[in-house]
């Protein structure tokens, strides 16, 4: 299968799930409470090959984030994940000569490093923009924030460790959180909140920044790492929609080789709908074209394969609540 679904037992529980439960336990949250509703028992983790699904991970995050004591768990978990991933992939990642090579390596290992998010790269004159979207299922706001915090802590830990003075901007899709000090303590580049989507902006000049002690000759072969090729359900659907912006539900169902009704059901199982998924793909691209590339309305409408301008304006207003020119001026 080229994709995996939210209920597929695909993830090794010892990578993220068990540390998450352990960290919660250290903060006074009983493992049974953390695992409530997942059909996983704490002693199941004794099995070294125990597998779990994205839905189970999401349920645990929901259970844990209800507790007031859990505010720093996501950040500590990101740090833990950094250590466990580096233990496995250091021979490949540590010898990427510069940031550009590292980004390519991360893209190749995307489904192994952090399969919960999909990254879409958009380029403009001065910088590259990485759009970060949920890859498996549309998560609730608190789960998305939690996973973003894990991801931020993970990549920020790596950058601080392996690079010197790298300027990166992070735009996050939620309002300034109450526990902002944890973001400050990470000492990440520039952080801003309340955006339409999660975006990472890297100046093109920063791509040449060399990684400490990297020797490209020592880099292991990618084939030996056996990167996983199956991607998350939403990410698979989104990739298709990026390449076929005019596609309808039937086209998407054909791409998945399932019926339209099954496609609808599967999208609903992943907390999504065809229209919202398509809106997300198009709206993110529209925002990029207007804010970063300075496109006119006609150019954006053409890039997004809209038939006429009024249609595009109407859709735009629906996505952002403002007209294209108002967004251009903000």
């Amino acid at each position: 299968m080229p994709y995996f679904e939210s209920n597929n037992l695909r993830f090794n529980s010892h990578q993220l799930l068990e540390p998450l439960v352990e960290l919660a336990k250290q903060r006074g949250i009983h493992p049974d409470k953390a695992l409530k509703g997942t059909k996983i028992f704490y002693k199941d983790f004794e099995n070294q090959n125990h597998k779990s699904s994205y839905t189970q991970l999401e349920q645990i995050i929901e259970n844990i984030t209800k507790h007031n004591l859990s505010q720093d768990i996501s950040f500590v978990l990101g740090q833990h994940l950094l250590h466990s991933l580096c233990a496995k992939y250091a021979s490949y990642l540590f010898h990427c000569i510069d940031l550009k090579a590292l980004l390519i390596a991360c893209k190749q290992l995307e489904n192994d490093l952090f399969p919960y998010f999909s990254i879409r790269m958009l380029r403009e004159g001065q910088a590259i923009h990485l759009l970060v979207n949920p890859a498996v299922s549309e998560p609730s706001t608190c789960t998305y924030q939690f996973l973003l915090e894990v991801w931020l802590s993970l990549i920020n830990g790596f950058i601080k460790w392996r690079f010197n003075n790298l300027e990166i901007q992070f735009q996050l899709p939620y309002s300034t959180p109450a526990h902002i000090e944890h973001y400050h303590a990470m000492q990440v580049g520039k952080l801003s909140f309340g955006h339409h989507a999660c975006t990472v902006e890297i100046r093109k000049t920063a791509l040449q920044t060399r990684q400490y002690d990297a020797v490209s000759a020592l880099q292991s072969n990618l084939v030996t790492l056996q990167p996983c090729t199956s991607i998350g359900f939403l990410s698979y659907a989104e990739t298709f929609l990026i390449h076929h912006p005019k596609a309808c539900l039937e086209d998407l169902a054909n791409h998945f080789k399932i019926s339209e009704a099954t496609m609808k059901r599967k999208l609903s199982q992943h907390n999504s709908q065809f229209s919202s998924l398509k809106d997300r793909v198009l709206s993110q691209q529209a925002a990029f074209c207007i804010q970063q590339q300075g496109y006119s309305n006609a150019q954006v409408a053409k890039a997004l394969a809209f038939n006429d301008l009024p249609n595009f304006r109407r859709a735009f207003k629906r996505w952002f609540g403002v007209t294209p020119s108002e967004l251009r001026n903000t």
């Binding site: 352990e22 250290q26 500590v76 740090q79 833990h80 250590h83 580096c86 830990g157 460790w161």
Partner: peptide
């Protein structure tokens, strides 16, 4: 602290 956690684990870090 990061190096300490990397060497000895998150639990000892805490």
């Amino acid at each position: 602290y990061s190096q300490f956690c990397f060497k000895h684990g998150i639990t000892k870090g805490e």
